[in-house]
Design a protein around this nucleic acid. Structure first.
Length: 545
RNA sequence: UGGGGUAUGGCCAAGCGGUAAGGCACUGGUUUCUGGCACCAGCAUUCCUAGGUUCGAAUCCUAGUACCCCAGCCA
């Protein structure tokens, strides 16, 4: 893994003896699906641990039973594994530490460093103070014994939600609001998906996280920039409790990608309002969406490597992700010919019942992938776009009287354009030159080689072409009164129900390069007699009309 | 308006006082039975601005400017 400022810090810590090993963690809250932004964090945490021969834990930060679900935990584990990372036997849950966290809270109360407050949420807001104006709490000087008793009764379930909180006694006048006696425990009745009804009080993130890190022996707690102002509190908790080890929090900037949104809240809206077909819609930046689309874990890891890690807010161009994908798939994916929008071509000088099997390479980047045989015949389909009746000068595919090579077959010449009454081109009559068989002695050159399929021996398949979900680079950039939803790309999905593919057998999730089009993946909607392909990413093209 | 953070080409990003890495994008060209891939070449006299220190500054100092985050009993 390439270095970054976090690694510089880690190396300094190692050199100074502040840490002997490197132990990180990836701590998702199981309240949603992972997206490519999480992939950055996963690669950073697991990658950093590996770089320094350390370990990385997977820990669910499940301290808010109202939001968290088993479904998300299962999906998160599957996504992390799919991305290629292994937490071995180190799957942890903040909820495993509830009893210990509780005891640390008691310890704080006994030391006069925490107290039970009776302000409700609204009152606490009113007492929060403002810039230059300290917060207040009438309960700050409650006797230790009284807080201890109240806290025990909070745990025992004697009170209603919100009636009491436990607050750390730090500094009501701090310019950093996080330090103005933050709530560290709240009452929340309702079932927790792992601890059931064992608890009705739950620790806040700011209290549970440093303690969880410490209990697991985490040396470097890597998180995103918005937690930077929480770091004094993170350090305070470790310094003011007897928790076993000291961990250091280091923050980095989260990933933003052009043409998409990354916040869980907005992704949820896309799903719930039906703008996409689910969390795993191939247009979604979720790992499950990218997986279904056909993205490879290798490409995603490579992308996370290339974007770097820094503290400045940034928005990475989606073109980089696409580049990583093309680079990976170029060597991985076998080539196949598929005509997306078919145009029938009759080769008039080819025998009526003629048929021959022509060899074609599977992957020019990998000769060891060998060749396969393609059926050729008198009637074929070519791409509608590969013929133009009145082409611009730079167009060098098929035109009236013009010639092109059919990949792995012959050079054909367009003799006649057949149209219907409405003037639409319905068919082409061409002739072929038998001397120009691919691999043969002919030295005849033409400007273009196009793909084709045999009309008699091809399969009709459904192809789904995906484009950016949002037209704007930054979907949040919208006129006043508008919403990011208004930036949705109306053409983010185009379904082609009548594509023609050469006769092949496919495996679920298998990826191909459709020659001259792009990379495609078998979608799970595929059934025996109905194949569905997703376009993962198109090929680059330097053709300019 | 208090606190915290960040500013290097269109987009990321190295750089840590010795004279601006790399990738993506883009632009030319070579090659090609994929207008793909590969290959070659080009792409910041300048690092948010203005002063200062120094033989020498993107790097140090001073003063500004812009943007992001913070007043949940979310994480």
């Amino acid at each position: 893994m390439a270095g970054n400022f976090i690694h510089d810090e880690i190396e300094a810590d190692l050199a100074a003896g502040h840490a002997q090993t490197v132990h990180t963690r990836f701590p998702p809250e199981p309240n949603g699906y992972l997206h490519i932004g999480h992939a950055k964090s996963i690669c950073l945490n697991f990658g950093t641990a590996k770089k320094y021969q350390g370990l990385c834990n997977l820990r669910f930060d499940d301290t808010n039973p109202a939001k968290e679900e088993q479904e998300f935990m299962d999906a998160i584990k599957a996504d992390v594994r799919w991305l290629g990372f292994d937490w071995q036997d180190r799957l942890f849950f903040a909820s495993d530490y509830f009893e210990q966290i509780y005891q640390y809270a008691v310890e704080l109360i006994k030391a006069g460093k925490a107290y039970v407050c009776e302000l409700n949420a609204d009152q606490m807001r009113e007492h929060r103070g403002s810039i230059g104006q300290p917060a207040t709490s009438p309960w700050r000087d409650r006797p230790i014994e009284e807080s201890l008793d109240l806290f025990a009764r909070m745990r025992a379930g004697e009170f209603a939600d919100g009636q009491y909180t436990l607050r750390a006694k730090i500094d009501l006048a701090s310019p950093n609001f996080v330090m103005r006696d933050p709530v560290i425990y709240r009452i929340q009745h309702g079932e927790h998906n792992r601890t059931g009804n064992d608890w009705c009080i739950y620790p806040m993130y700011d209290f549970a996280h440093p303690i969880s890190d410490s209990l697991e022996g985490i040396t470097h707690s890597i998180c995103t920039m918005e937690f930077e102002i929480h770091r004094p509190l993170y350090d305070w908790v470790i310094a003011n409790t007897s928790c076993p080890t000291k961990s250091r929090q280091i923050e980095f900037a989260r990933l933003n990608l052009t043409h998409t949104v990354m916040s869980k809240r907005f992704l949820r809206r896309l799903v719930e309002e039906g703008h996409v077909r689910g969390w795993d819609d191939p247009r979604m930046p979720t790992l499950s969406g990218l997986r279904r689309r056909g993205y490879t874990p290798e490409a995603i890891r490579d992308f996370c490597e290339r974007i770097g890690v820094a503290k400045a807010e940034s928005m990475v161009d989606s073109a980089l992700l696409e580049h990583c994908l093309r680079e990976d798939l170029n060597t991985q994916a076998d080539r196949v010919m598929c005509v997306l929008r078919p145009l029938k071509v009759v080769i008039t000088n080819y025998p009526e019942d003629g048929r021959e099997m022509l060899p074609i390479e599977n992957n020019p980047e990998k000769p060891e992938r060998g060749k396969r045989l393609l059926p050729f015949g008198r009637e074929i389909y070519i791409e509608q776009d590969d013929f133009m009746e009145e082409p611009p000068k730079k167009f060098f595919r098929l035109k009236p009287g013009g010639e092109v090579r059919l990949k792995a077959a012959y050079i054909i010449k367009c003799e006649e354009v057949i149209k219907d009454e409405a003037g639409n081109i319905v068919e082409l009559h061409c002739t072929y030159d038998p001397e120009t068989i691919s691999g043969g002695p002919s030295t005849k050159k033409v400007k273009a080689t196009i793909h084709w399929v045999n009309a008699k021996e091809c399969k009709t398949v459904e192809v789904r072409l995906y484009d950016y979900l949002f037209t704007a680079d930054n979907p949040y950039d919208c006129p006043e009164g508008a919403d990011f939803i208004d930036n949705l790309n109306p053409n983010s999905l185009e379904v082609l129900p009548d594509a023609k593919i050469e006769p092949i057998y496919v495996m679920p999730n298998e990826r191909f390069q459709f020659l001259r089009h792009g990379y495609f993946c078998v979608d799970p909607d595929t059934e025996n007699d109905h194949m569905v392909f997703n376009r993962i990413v198109s090929l680059k093209s330097s053709f300019k009309a």
